[in-house]
Each structure stands twice: as C-alpha cells, then as structure tokens.
C-alpha cells in the first residue's frame, strides 16, 4: 500500500505551511520525511490523517482519503504526538480508550505494549513516563490495529541511543515485511542508517525525493581550510585564480572554510600568494548532513 501526496497545500492564515507538495511513499521501504523545523512535516502528516483540512490538493493512503477508510486503525497506524496522552490514565488505559473506539480488544493493547517493550509500565500513569516512554507508547498506539502502513512524526525524539537503535531495527523489520513506513525527522543523521528513501522539504515545498543512495552520490569532495583569517580568505577565494573560481564556498565557522570545485593545489597557491596564515588544508568528503543543509537552505 502506498501513500500519495498530490499537490498538497495548506495555509494557516498568512502562513504557507505546505506548498504544492507531491510525492509517493512506496511499500516495503522505510522513507525518511525530512526538513528543518517549521518546514511543514507535521502539517503534511496531519493533512494525510485527516486532522488538518488541506487548503487544496490531497493526500491518499492506498488511493483513499483517511476519512474514507472504514477502519483506519487497521490500515494506517499514525504516531504523531508523544505528548498526546491523558497524564492521569495508565499507559494501558490510554491505549484501551483507543482500542475501544477502534473495536479492538484488550489483547491488541497487550500485544502492542509488548512489541514496544512497555509492558513493564502498563499500569503506571503516563504522568510518570519519561519522554522516551511516551514515544514508545505513541508507537504502541500506532501498532494497535496491526496496520500495513506506519506514519510516525519524529519518533526518535527523546529516545536514548539504545532506543534509537531498537527503533531502527523495528522499522526496518516492519518494512521488510512489505509494510509502508514513513518517518519524519529534522535531522538527516538521525535516520540516515534507517531509511531507504528520502523526501526532503523546506518551507513547505518539495526539495528532493530520491533513494538514500542517490543522495549519498551527491556528496562531493571539497577542500577544508583552517585559518584565523577565514573572512579575508573567503573573499580572495571568491575572486579566484587565473579565471578559476570555486563552485561553492561555505564558511563553516570563524576558522573553517569549505571550498568546492577547486583543486587543493589552487587553494594552497592563493593562500601563499596572499600570505594567508594556514592551520590546516585537506581534502574531505561532504557530510550527508551538509547536503541536507544546503538543499534546505540551512547554510549560506
């Protein structure tokens, strides 16, 4: 079962949260839905699940709108909010309330709690849960109806490294069974080891939808320069040498510049000719996170 966003647009008053967003999420793979804070991930997922009404366009699950699915819990499990539980109810009762409404039994609740390793806290009030425990409970809620489609908004938030590793295995296992798995995150590195495909958005617009491998292929060799005179050197590099100009220059911080599209020898020569004090000069492959940042306009 696939998920399809078709020209989805959502405006909140003057805020253009999602703009003309189209992409498809394939079954049998884990898809990362990535974008910086405020880029419209949660809004898109809430449009998909009928919580927010799109201004125009639509989002479909297996060709159907969420509200048209007869028993949504059995088709799509959504974990959108780790904090959406009644603090005075136990974990078990919070899920039972959902199970009742979905026509599921207490055994579905027990089995979901089991799957996320929360059986030990079933009778503890959610008030006393840590953020990580609430995340697990939210995931348990999504799993209640054993749905073939999983949609999770920032599920790794609040999880410890062990929890993140567990979540990774769990999502990959679910996908390996042929399920459709869509997980959002605002940091690529968090899901880098989990996802097969990426959908990257910025300011509510699609920036890139491809496989992780294709994204990795975009990482480039660049020259990293460490110098106390970073600002002056950046200007010199921009003016180039003998008509050679770098394709991109990023000032990482006060002391580090990354130069793309210019051989390390040329960078060194410009430094020597202008008596720039160098503390480091080396070739380096761009981080995937940097590709993500440059795609989403996170750096200059």
């Amino acid at each position: 079962m696939s998920i399809e966003f078709r020209r989805l647009t959502k405006h909140f008053g003057g805020t253009h949260a999602v703009n003309d967003l189209s992409f498809t999420v394939a079954p049998g793979r884990v898809t990362g839905f990535l974008g910086p804070n405020g880029s419209g991930k949660s809004t898109s997922l809430r449009c998909l699940t009928g919580l927010v009404t799109p201004t125009s366009g639509e989002a479909l699950i297996d060709g159907q709108r969420y509200v048209d699915i007869p028993q949504p819990s059995r088709k799509i499990g959504a974990g959108l909010e780790a904090t959406g539980f009644h603090p005075g109810r136990t974990g078990f009762n919070n899920l039972m309330v959902m199970a009742d409404a979905a026509g599921l039994s207490a055994s579905a609740v027990e089995s979901s709690l089991e799957q996320v390793g929360m059986t030990f806290a079933r009778d503890t009030k959610v008030d006393a849960y840590s953020l990580g425990m609430k995340q697990r409970l939210a995931l348990a809620g999504a799993l209640l109806g054993d749905p073939p489609v999983l949609v999770l908004d920032e599920p790794a938030n609040g999880l410890d490294p062990e929890g993140i590793a567990w979540l990774r295995n769990f999502l990959q296992y679910k996908a390996s069974l042929g399920n459709t798995v869509l997980v959002s995150s605002h940091v690529l590195s968090e899901v880098q080891q989990t996802v097969d495909d990426v959908v990257i958005i910025a300011k509510g617009r699609l920036v890139k939808a491809c496989s992780l491998d294709e994204l990795v292929a975009e990482t480039q060799m660049h020259v990293e320069v460490v110098t106390p005179e970073a600002a002056r050197f950046e200007t010199l590099l921009r003016s180039g040498l003998d008509g050679h100009h770098p394709s991109a220059i990023r000032l990482k911080n006060q002391h580090i510049i990354e130069v793309e599209g210019m051989p390390i020898s040329t960078v060194g020569r410009i430094a020597v000719q202008n008596s720039i004090e160098l503390h480091g000069l080396r070739e380096h492959r761009t981080d995937l996170e940097d590709v993500f940042l440059s795609l989403t306009g996170g750096t200059a």
Binding site: Y66, P72, S73, A78, E81, G84, P87, A102
Partner: peptide, 12 residues
C-alpha cells in the same frame, strides 16, 4: 491534554 489527536485518528 492533546488527546484529541488520537481520538480523531481512531475515529475521523
């Protein structure tokens, strides 16, 4: 308590 999200997810 923001439980409306889960309520409406189960019963749209």
């Amino acid at each position: 308590h923001r439980t409306a999200t889960l309520t409406y997810l189960v019963s749209p």
